[in-house]
Amino acid sequence: MMESIIQIRELHFARGTHKIFNGISLDIHAGQVTAFMGPSGTGKTTLLKIIGGQLRPDKGNVQVYGKDIHHVSQNELYDLRKRMGMLFQSGALLTDINVFENVAFPLREHTRLPEQIIRDLVLIKLEAVGLRGARRLMPSELSGGMARRVALARAIVLDPSMIMYDEPFTGLDPITKGTIVTLIKELNETLGIASVIVSHDVNETMSIADYIYVISDGQVVESGTPENLGSSSSPWLQQFLQGLPDGPVPFHYPAENYRDDLLAGR
């Protein structure tokens, strides 16, 4: 097992009175694809934001590259962030500049490279996601999948050692989904970039993850390699993996007795 680059210990986080994380501990290792899975609303995106230092946990400790990301100076925090890329669900491209400038944005902000080198670097990254020909398009002219690929090119332009993907497969057609799966795999294998994937798309996630944490009700309920999880006997996990509508996780949001509720209106 390779060294762990992110260590989360006893993490607690609440939004108002609603507890999102209730003592989570986990590790993310260099060079691996780690996935967080779980039903909607279990705070998977929140977890990425906590790792990125955008949200502060109520309790607990998050070490990124050996530093407590919530207790470093702004400069140190920004240095850490330059080493992690993040792919937002929407792509979050800057809408007032074109594809090329979007990918060039981190370079222009953080380096003083000559224009020629910026151009080369941007074209290399755009070629990697197959969109070198789309460099002059504006973000509003891109489809959802293309926007996500441009965002991916932007996320890797500073050559981070880790990329966080927020729901990378959601809302894409099967072909584009396949493209993204391949891209994540290639980036991981050829560049050795650690990948953190947050998703509830079981098949895609199982196919590329090295290690999976299943999160529910603010806790890690299961963890292991895809093979381990697939052969797990937990009925809850089997319901989740096979997508059954009812089971240990009820179909209904907690409510009072149906009959009483209907009659109460009389």
Binding site: Q54, S90, A92, T95, P106, E109, H110
Partner: peptide, 17 residues
């Protein structure tokens, strides 16, 4: 709108204030 479409958030994650 930049906030709604996570553009500000993504800048923060690119270490841009």
């Amino acid at each position: 709108l930049m906030k709604t479409t996570e553009q500000l958030s993504s800048m923060e994650m690119m270490a841009v204030d």
